[in-house]
């Protein structure tokens, strides 16, 4: 095992309750806006409202795996166990949100495309990303030594991030049933009505706070686990 130190006195337990309150409050606001305030879509009717769940979940999936990548680089660079705690926490939360992203997409696909699942690039690449990070967690689970586990996982976390842009851009590279990017469009402003866009932005903020809350909780748990490992 390489020499590592656990920095003491982290601030996570102090900010966690406030993050939880902010996440819950913003989630309520976002839900009310999505269900009652945002206008009905002229083509899809009310079904489109799942957008306010589906898009934030997609954003969180991307965010979580980019954080895994950054934390993996941090671990390989510094060997600070905090980075490993961040990586594993973000990977677990990312797998959860990617799973929900796929389920929400499937629920949206049924009334709009007529099927729960279709073999189009965005769906397939997302499912592959999901499997990739399940593999990441499996790799961690099978390694016993802390330092080796963290290093192996970090290397895979760096390689796997390449799938994130592939998922996002897959709708541009291949003929796709899935609509093209609506918010992050190359060379253009978001293709959404202003009230829909505002609702979407509030939802993105709320889900990001939920991610931050989950992260603080999971990182604290992982740090406690690391401390137990070091003291035994």
């Amino acid at each position: 095992m390489t020499e590592t130190t656990i920095p003491r006195g982290n601030a996570l337990p102090r900010i966690r309750p406030w993050l939880g309150i902010a996440a819950a409050a913003s989630f309520v606001v976002a839900s009310v806006m999505a269900l009652f305030w945002a206008p009905t879509d002229a083509v899809q009717g009310n079904v489109y409202r799942i957008l306010y769940v589906h898009v934030p979940l997609a954003w969180l999936a991307y965010l979580a795996f980019v954080v895994v990548f950054l934390a993996s680089v941090g671990w390989l660079w510094t060997k600070n166990p905090l980075f490993d705690a961040i990586a594993v926490s973000s990977a677990e939360i990312g797998v959860l949100f990617t799973g929900l992203f796929l389920v929400a997409g499937s629920i949206w696909a049924k009334p709009t495309w007529g099927v729960w699942w279709t073999w189009e690039p965005r769906l397939v690449t997302t499912a592959i990303m999901f499997v990739m990070y399940v593999g990441y967690l499996l790799l961690r689970g099978l390694s016993t030594d802390f330092s080796r586990r963290a290093t192996r996982a970090a290397v895979f976390g760096i390689i796997a991030v390449i799938d994130v842009p592939i998922v996002h851009l897959s709708v541009l590279w291949a003929n796709s049933l899935h609509q093209l990017p609506t918010v992050l469009r190359a060379g253009g402003s978001p293709a959404l009505d202003s009230s829909m866009l505002l609702t979407l932005m509030v939802s993105l903020g709320a889900y990001t706070l939920i991610y931050a809350y989950f992260m603080t909780s999971r990182i604290s748990l992982e740090r406690a686990r690391q401390e137990r490992l070091w003291t035994t």
Partner: peptide, 20 residues
């Protein structure tokens, strides 16, 4: 290399490699 000396390596390598 990542799965070297791990149990269930035969199953783990395809799971890691094929999606990438």
């Amino acid at each position: 290399v990542l799965a070297l000396r791990l149990r269930a390596r035969a199953a783990l390598v395809p799971i890691l490699a094929l999606p990438v």
